[in-house]
Design a binder for these strands. Structure first.
Lengths: 218, 218
DNA sequence: GTGGATCCATGTATGGATCCAA
DNA sequence: TTGGATCCATACATGGATCCAC
């Protein structure tokens, strides 16, 4: 079931374009709930199931052989991104030792297959339509800004300013909470390598970047 | 529900003596299955629930405030231990850096409350009786042998001989697989710190030690 | 008899993201 | 608008141990 070539994956993704989530769910044997309040990742998992034949939450790219990451992109009525896009978790220990091109953010974003999906709240979940897939990798200008952001953010982490790090930093890339709730904790370390506990956080792409990506492919 | 003093814990454990597992299960609101093939840890969890008021699988001693570890001890008809006793997992990374008195094995065995339970296969699970609790800590002779065993075993691990380490080593303490099945893997490291994968293992007490403990308390 | 294999429950981390109050 | 908060599913780790073929 796993696509073996990039062409095969693109073909399969193109075949989804125009279909509703309800129709795809039927074909894969799932039933859509009325709302996404309980199951925020449902659409992403449905699309992954439809394209890869399975939806397991293991580490690494969604299509390891192709090195391609799959991301759904929720659109509002005018066709703009409704939400920021989660990239990966912040690992205070590891991120500091690597360079931009060795970072998990870079690897996640190196080759992305975007699947736009209607997400205006007034459209019932099952009736939302899937858009045409966009195969993307950062161009030179985008990569430069992403790198600047990443270096600014990891720089602050390195200085032990993780707790001062709000989502206001970064032009394309931001850091926001990524946890069960605001009481969740993960281990971290301070400027002097002092161990501590902090709220788990993740890297997210702002909509100004995903909007660019959409615009340049229409 | 958690006993606050050692005396309270002992009193509660003594109150269980003579009761059947079925009776205790009723009191705690559980139902016993017919067999333990599906749920090998059931008896241990039932006893923990009855004594501590909860049965959560967090790290650390079962009664943190008291520093006491709870262990059930399955007995055959003549009243001898039927099985070896699991102590803790082998962590190839950490075990090597600590001394005997800093080791997780030592801490686990420092203060143990043994609960003997009938376990002859011909007795239906619900009818098996609980015995009198035994509060134990290693005496000087036992501690000496345990330390010798631990140093022999960790010595072999340090030499990178983890894969040659069978359960035949050790007088009281042995190392055996502790995994979902024989294909499970965990990270380890070789003699030269080379990373690798190996079968997860655990430390176990042989029955010759638990039999001693039983004998010296009757 | 016992060394190697295996079983369940629960906790925690990770991957999929959207919700919602200010 | 958007920064902070939150939700579900699944995988993996840990704690409770016993099973069973040789």
């Amino acid at each position: 079931m796993i696509p073996l070539t990039e062409a095969e994956l693109m073909e399969r993704a193109s075949a989804l374009a125009g279909k509703t989530l309800g129709k795809v769910a039927l074909q894969t044997g799932l039933t859509m709930p009325a709302s996404m309040k309980q199951a925020k990742g449902l659409v992403g998992q449905l699309i992954e199931l439809a394209l890869a034949g399975a939806c397991s939450t293991h580490a690494g790219p969604d299509f390891p052989a192709l090195g391609i990451e799959l991301k759904t992109l929720p659109l509002d009525r005018p066709g703009h991104p409704r939400e920021s896009t989660y990239v990966c978790t912040v690992a205070p220990q590891n991120d500091l030792k690597s360079s931009w091109k060795q970072s998990r953010v870079w690897h996640k974003l190196a080759r992305v297959l975007w699947i736009p999906v209607e997400a205006a709240p007034e459209i019932p979940l099952a009736q939302r339509r899937i858009g045409s897939p966009i195969f993307w990798h950062p161009d030179v200008a985008q990569d430069k800004i992403l790198q600047q952001d990443w270096e600014e953010l990891t720089g602050m982490i390195r200085e032990g300013e993780l707790d001062k790090l709000t989502s206001r930093y970064g032009q394309y890339l931001q850091i926001r909470p990524k946890a069960r709730d605001s009481k969740a904790l993960q281990s971290s370390s301070g400027p002097d390598d002092s161990p501590g506990q902090t709220l788990p956080r993740g890297y997210y792409l702002r909509t100004c970047l995903t909007r660019q990506i959409l615009d340049s492919h229409t």
